[in-house]
Design a protein around this nucleic acid. Structure first.
Lengths: 161, 161
DNA sequence: ACCTAAAGTTCTAAAATTGAACTGTCAATT
DNA sequence: AATTGACAGTTCAATTTTAGAACTTTAGGT
């Protein structure tokens, strides 16, 4: 399977994996949320090769997650900032961090703590139901095909012919 | 950077990316949450090569996300089920799916809908603060070094010497 | 004139992934 | 008794990605 095919699958997870499902993209986004904006800064913070960094930034811009904006002329230099689409990845990042905090820490404890400015407390992110507000568990969720589900099998067969 | 180095970084995101940050692991986990358990079933659902599937399953078992349990003798056959550590990835999966639902759908709409058995409604997952219950936004969160943060620079220099 | 900084690009070697065929065990079928 | 098929992998060559290092371009500072 190629990356482009992933993007076209009738599955929101697969399509998102096409965007962030590699070793570097999520780390680049972590840096974005920590206010990193420039090529050299990404490179030295992550230790990614310049080649790959250039490629990933290009990809994230193409997909609308980052915007490349000039911050000076002569020589023209650009920096990378999160779009709204990129900012919307925050829950993904936090869910990942929280899993790491729970299952991948050593004896010394968490590398980072998060403080919620709203309430002033150190917190963990919790995923809840938009309708009833209760925390979500896999077993309480049933999945139904939506309007964008895979075509009926008959139609798929047509296409193959 | 190698995968093992990722696992050892003082960052819960990097450590989690070491587990799920590749093209296939998240898709395999999607299938697990959809009740897929067996090698052939994963293979035909995903179109992954058998070679890679075997490797990824082994890795997820080694990392404690899946457990390999025999379901028959003669010939001995095994199936793969989520451990608690694996089940805890549900919020990550849901956050990813929700982002795809928001930003990667075509005109036909979502491929899948989710129903919360608790309240009986179709829902979206929302990430909230464990302390005050308010939805989280990146701008309202401040980050502090925790007990497992990177060693002081002086100590790092020691190590290098 | 030379050095540095930033943001890339180019090149070769190493590593990961793909695709396809092959293996071993056993049950069921011919 | 021999053949077929299911399942859970393993093996191997070819292709694609990634890593590592050097190089390029534009311009300011000394």
């Amino acid at each position: 399977m190629k990356w482009d095919e992933l993007e076209e699958q009738p599955c929101s997870l697969a399509r998102t994996v096409a965007v962030i499902g590699d070793r570097w993209s999520l780390l680049i986004l972590r840096e974005c949320f920590l206010r990193t904006r420039r090529f050299e800064a990404f490179q030295s913070a992550l230790g990614i090769t310049r080649h790959l960094l250039a490629e990933r930034l290009k990809k994230l811009v193409r997909l609308g997650v980052l915007r490349r904006i000039p911050y000076q002329d002569s020589p023209k230099r650009y920096e990378y900032i999160l779009t709204q689409k990129g900012l919307d990845l925050y829950p993904v990042i936090m869910a990942i961090v929280h899993w790491g905090d729970t299952h991948m820490v050593d004896s010394r404890g968490r590398p980072m703590l998060h403080e919620h400015q709203n309430c002033g407390k150190l917190f963990d992110p919790v995923m809840v139901c938009s309708e009833c507000g209760e925390p979500l568990a896999a077993k309480q969720v049933h999945v139904h095909p939506g309007p964008g589900a895979r075509q009926p099998v008959a139609l798929k067969a047509e296409k193959v012919r």
